[in-house]
Design a protein around this nucleic acid. Structure first.
Lengths: 346, 346
DNA sequence: GTTAGCACTCGATGTATTGGAGTGCTAACA
DNA sequence: TGTTAGCACTCCAATACATCGAGTGCTAAC
């Protein structure tokens, strides 16, 4: 059996209706809704076929039909091509551009959540390729040195290094010059052990400090790895009865609070050949078991040279895919284009 | 009518029982539970009195009694003193001391949540009195200066300042010296306009940069004001049917996600004559309307010289006050004593 | 191929019925 | 006078049962 045009139309009508109401939809409803001018009996026959094909499901004998994951998938796939909806409103809300990166991203998550009525997450952009831009050592007091490490894109990290000896200004200057002349502009992966040893030798007595600084650099990178995730609207899930059930709700809320699980989502989203497209996970397709009753839509944005973050929307399977995809696209474009303005991150 | 000893004992028994079960408790139960050797009929008479006095409530005619806010209050105030329970186990969990402040605090929230089965929040310590320790300006590139501002207790903030002119090293050095000689060690409130003007004059051509730096300092302080709050175990509320109701759960979860509301709690907790004691808010006493069906226990910890944070536990009114207070006390002591080790915060 | 018609299914809703936990009150008792 | 046994009463929760209606599948006719 094949999906002819009529079946497709009927399937579409069923899904549309279900997205709105959240209730199983019956043959009579479709018979009235569509412009096919078919009686409910005919629809019934078609629906039986659609069920056999696996696109829709009957919760129980005397109920209407609801879309299966496969049904949603077809809907989403076909829909994404035709409909290039524009969502411009959001632009305004983000235009009052937040200075700080974290504020901006929190804001994005919030705006998205308010706009869509789903739960949202936004990750801070993460470097794929880190270049060291600049290192600055300064004396805080007799026993402490402050190392400021600036990485490509003005990500700044600080580290306080305890020292035994009271270094004089001249030494500090030397160390600074030594570090910067050798390390600036280098991708971090390229700072290897041999290099460090060489530097230590050149630093002579103060070699250990160099080691500490390099450690701090390494630490900086490592820390950047457990990425920051901002979420908003988690409580939106209560708006959808199918998710507001105790167990599910509890698990979902937990995922949003602990955030660790969400990083799986990010990885999966970014870990793909085509990084630039919007991804839709439906039900069991989700990379997180907890969300098997949800649909997830993700987009990756790029913040200039290799710095990449992810935006995600988590809602019920009967999500307004159309709107969500449009909205995400719009946000993505804006974030992509925001790189020109130097933003910074504490 | 007065609360004699017997009534007190009965009330206590009722509350204890209710804390455990969460179900209204009847006269027969009390008659069996206590060592008073009274028949259920007698207990009934006493319970009627206790209800008249406002310590307990009857949800409906043929149900047992549950404690009122007033009842809980009495219980918490008087009955808990005796029991100075020690909770040492937590110490171990925190001993693997996290380097970074934010990790540590997240960890505290998590441990608390796991340990108590309630929702928890921990705020980062906040300065009451800020002293500027150190300022460092460095050239990032031709058009940007990086200002690093270190405040008492090694809180570090960065700010990137765009500049028109390409400053040479000598100028940078001069500016650094100028700023540090005049500002170091000053409480931030004392950096006033007159001072800034004087500095600007001394800086001559580069006066505007001084202005920018001071702005950055001000910004740093301001930012520190919207305090960071770490939460954990929000989904624990689902463990208590009286809170797991849709509306309540949704509101609570929202409070935990947006965190803004929680800051009210922090203010209230810190805004008191006796800052050192554990506070218990029961039901309507809570400073947040959203939590009027909960009880909240807070403790303030002090991280050395005027740096103060708050730990809070939010749960159902039938919370295990005893354990929670004990646990909080223990955690508080540990955090208080942690100041000796210099921790730092990015 | 389409449709009208009909028997059938099954959840949802509404209504009694019952059981049990708990109370308040009264009367008897120590 | 305080305590207790006993009893009538209340009310929730659970159970059973009837009913309703939306929806289906199937058949026969168009």
């Amino acid at each position: 059996m094949q999906l002819d045009e009529r079946k497709t139309k009927i399937l579409q009508a069923i899904i549309r209706n279900y997205l709105e109401t959240g209730e199983p939809v019956g043959s009579r409803t479709i018979s009235k809704y569509t412009d096919l001018n078919l009686s409910s009996a005919t629809i019934r026959n078609e629906m039986a076929d659609l069920e056999e094909l696996g696109y829709i499901i009957q919760p129980h004998t005397s109920a209407g039909r609801i879309p299966s994951d496969k049904g949603y998938r077809l809907y989403v796939d076909s829909m994404m091509q035709e409909n290039e909806r524009q969502v411009e409103e959001l632009k305004e809300m983000l235009v009052e551009k937040e200075e700080k990166m974290d504020h901006l991203l929190k804001q994005v998550a919030k705006v998205l959540a308010n706009n869509t009525n789903y739960a949202t997450m936004v990750t801070a952009p993460r470097y794929q390729r880190n270049k060291l831009k600049f290192i600055q050592l300064s004396k805080v007091d007799a026993k402490q040195i402050l190392a400021v490490i600036v990485v490509e894109g003005n990500v700044i990290k600080n580290s306080i290094i305890p020292v035994e000896e009271n270094l004089n200004e001249e030494t500090m200057l030397k160390l600074n010059i030594l570090l910067n002349t050798h390390l600036n502009g280098l991708p971090i992966e390229e700072i290897n052990l041999g290099m460090v040893t060489a530097l230590k030798q050149q630093a002579g007595v103060h070699g250990s400090i160099i080691g500490d600084v390099i450690d701090a650099v390494a630490e900086t990178i490592k820390e950047d790895e457990d990425l920051e995730i901002y979420t908003s609207g988690a409580n939106n899930i209560f708006k959808y009865p199918e998710l507001a059930v105790q167990d599910k709700a509890s698990e979902l809320i937990n995922a949003f609070e602990e955030k660790q699980l969400l990083s799986k989502l990010v990885e999966d989203s970014q870990d793909s050949s085509n990084n630039n497209e919007i991804k839709v996970y439906i039900g069991e397709e989700a990379p997180i078991q907890t969300m098997k009753d949800c649909s997830i839509v993700t987009a990756n944005y790029e913040f200039g040279d290799g710095m990449r973050g992810t935006i995600g929307i988590i809602g019920p399977k009967r999500m307004d895919y159309d709107k969500v995809v449009g909205t995400l696209k719009s946000i993505k474009v804006q974030l992509d284009s925001m790189y020109n303005d130097d933003s910074q991150k504490g």
